[in-house]
């Protein structure tokens, strides 16, 4: 439980940090995954750059109908910021499910997103919110969607030298109901399955629906088959049940000590049902 020797830098500016990262340093943004790996000597970076302390990455603001959240905002701040609770409750609710209070106080949105743990909570919400992820390197900035960003197990669109600097989510249109429902792995607190749902009504029918799922397979995904089975259909239990049955369509489910692939798949259907029910009940 003792890390290998490493250098630790706390640059004052993002530009300085990106320079160090371009030279091969590894960004540290809360360290809730990286530090345990280092203590187990499963990870041995030679140089850490602490970007969680950068004021440039610590903000939540509303601009042009979107909410811009700096990468260094902690899970606790995502969970409790009035702006997010009021205008993007799905992200705030999801953040409240992460780990425990100690993890939420230290871990950051950008750190979690960049780590892309297949059982992390945020990706489900970011998929459902069609979030944009802002990536920056010493060479410049680019923006990708959540769907483009999360590629595979711990694998993202980040290029070497690039870090996540911001997450952009929409100001939730009025009348939208959202919900994150999670089956918790009781030891680690990660999601065995986590489902984020966004539901708008169109009269007595479902209008637009987005469903993001985490934990089931190597990376988070949009459950488009579920969405398609809902849009334009009567907003009833039967519709939800029939649509949720497609939660794992085309997906190869993970298997571990806590849940076999079959059980996880079944849970994905159950928790999709729950998330849709809950989101529907919160939509006006």
């Amino acid at each position: 439980m003792i890390a290998n020797p490493f250098e630790y830098s706390t640059p004052a500016t993002l530009a300085e940090a990106l320079g160090l990262i371009a030279d091969g340093a590894k960004p540290l943004s809360g360290g809730m995954s990286l530090i345990p790996m280092m203590k187990l000597r499963l990870a041995s970076p030679e140089h850490l750059v602490d970007i969680a302390r950068l004021p440039e990455l610590n903000y939540i603001r509303e601009e042009n109908g979107e909410l811009h959240i700096g990468a260094a905002v902690t899970h606790y701040d995502v969970e409790s910021a009035p702006l997010l609770c009021g205008k993007c409750p799905l992200l705030a609710e999801t953040a409240g499910h992460i780990g425990d209070i100690q993890v939420r106080n230290r871990g950051t949105l950008g750190g979690s997103v960049a780590h892309a743990d297949p059982a992390a909570d945020y990706p489900a919400a970011l998929q459902a919110l069609e979030a944009k992820i802002v990536l920056r390197s010493a060479a410049g900035e680019r923006v990708v969607t959540a769907a483009e960003f999360f590629i595979d197990t711990f694998t993202t669109a980040l290029e070497p030298g690039e870090i996540v600097t911001e997450v952009v989510v929409p100001v939730e249109p009025g009348l939208t109901g959202t919900s994150y429902q999670k089956c918790l792995q009781p030891a680690s607190g990660f999601a065995i399955v986590g489902v984020a749902a966004r539901v708008r009504r169109d009269g007595a029918n479902f209008g637009a629906v987005q469903v993001g799922i985490t934990g089931l397979t190597g990376t988070s995904y949009r459950a488009t088959a579920v969405e398609q089975a809902l849009v334009g259909k009567p907003a009833t239990d039967e519709t939800i049940r029939a649509a949720a049955a497609h939660a794992a369509d085309g997906v190869e489910a993970n298997s571990d000590l806590h849940a076999s692939a079959d059980y996880r798949t079944s849970l994905a259907v159950s928790y999709t049902t729950r998330a849709l029910h809950s989101a529907l009940s919160r939509s006006a």
Partner: peptide, 17 residues
């Protein structure tokens, strides 16, 4: 080794990837 002791939840999906 350490991977086996702490990485149970990762092994299946990592191998597949």
């Amino acid at each position: 080794g350490t991977m086996a002791a702490v990485g149970n939840r990762m092994i299946d999906m990592t191998a597949r990837m």
